[in-house]
Design a protein around this nucleic acid. Sequence first.
RNA 1: GGCGCUAUGGUGCAACGGUUAGCACGCGGCCCUCUCAAGGCCGAAAUACGGGUUCGAUUCCCGUUAGCGCUACCA
Length: 487
Amino acid sequence: MSGTTPNSGQNVRVRFAPSPTGYLHVGGARTALFNWLFARQRGGTMILRVEDTDAERNKPELVDGILEGLKWLGVDWDEGPIYQSQRTALYREAAEKLLANGSAFLCYCAAEKYAGGDHAGEGQAEKTRRITRCECREGKPSNPANKPAIRFKVPPGGTTKFTDLIFGEREFANDEIEDFVLLRSGRDSEEWGLPTYQMSVVVDDIDMRITHVIRGADHISNTPKQVLLYAALGAPRPVFAHVPLILGPDKARLSKRHGATSVTAYAEEGFLPEAFRNFLALLGWSPGTDEEFLRTKDLLDKFSLEGVSRTNAVFDRAKLEWFNTQYLQKLPIEDLLPQVALELKRSGLWKEEWASGAGREWFAKTVDLLRPRVRLLPDFSSWSRAFFTDEFSRDPAAIQKFWKDERIPELLRKLAGALEPLPEWNHDACDHALRTLAEQAGVKAGLLINATRVAIVGQAVAPPLFDTMVVLGQTRVVRRLREAAAS
RNA sequence: GGCGCUAUGGUGCAACGGUUAGCACGCGGCCCUCUCAAGGCCGAAAUACGGGUUCGAUUCCCGUUAGCGCUACCA
């Protein structure tokens, strides 16, 4: 790999820093993945930090779901989770230091004063220009009766520059940056409140010796504020790398109304984690070749921040599904088996005898037979249920489609009779027995084949019949044919 | 409103001054066939618009438009 990345010589330390105000969504998951790939391919350290400094919106119970989502994705971490809510002393200390060195000031203004009119919504109301400076900055408390917050004193004039690994050189006019809050004012008897995001990220990134900040592009506008903070705190800054956002099909930021947006939802739907990860990695990044199928090892091999694009990407579920079927079909069978076993355990169809020996051999063979037609893991329990248990029912639509001919019951009974005495149970023997019967009865083999499929697996769609028969076994097939003929 | 970012088929990416603009998903057709997939082959489909720079622009510059982001004592 090229040595264009600064700090490549030292130990790489990155972090993923979710906020427990929602579940792990696909955008966050990709950010986590990129951080992880970057750390792992360089033998660096991955830190998980929970940014829970918003006491109101914070939902601690959501943390478990986020961690679970990361684990499912195969993203692990070396340090943490570290909770910002437990490090308030550190931030207060930093705020006081900034106060002392003249980089910050006590602001007594009401919170609303700094907010521009209708800055967040798209209401018709004329949007007013927010204020960026207030009189408190000059040491003239606007309302001394209020408890103060600590704001950063943005230098007047000039610009703040930084280099982004993905977006290149960036420059912002300081006069456009408001004197942002570092430490919230205290409530009730508290002297101070919790730090704001800007404060806690910078203090933590310094404290944790983060070398590369890899995060969503929505933070690019926050970066100059943070660059200013690093300088005021006298700390070297990390390398920034902002990754483009993931959008819904309507190009709007991905949200609940686009359907599943949490990775947990995809796990529950039955996507393979590795397929999901492959898909996610290719959203905003490409190895520069036409390769699509990249397993974890390939990803670790080829990933580079320099190859990340700067344009937002639309989440395309159809392609995700394609990746999933590809993995279902092409994964070495031993890599797929555990996932299928998990699924069967979930649905209560699992039998311990399939874990080893001849049982495992049968299981592998069956899964291998089934997998070209499976789209999601739960298909193993639903659509292919008859392969794993005798408790299955026959799909009425399949019966409707393939049992139209009134000779079917009789044919099925005869087939059972022809199969029962077969001394050898294999593909060709079944094939020969069935075709012979069809010929004698004067019906097309296809008619009998389709009818038989419905009889023995209950579905109109299933693997090739004679392979299916072999896997099911002679006694089961014969019994199911007789049941079907009698029904 | 201000500031910023982005702009190749419907979608994800290639092409980083010279290609018949490539690949993949999706879509349509054909083949294969015992169902349905898979697979194979073929096809429709793009450089947002307008100016420059250049012998030559998808590529560099400017403007327009559009989308997105930030503009909170949210993160």
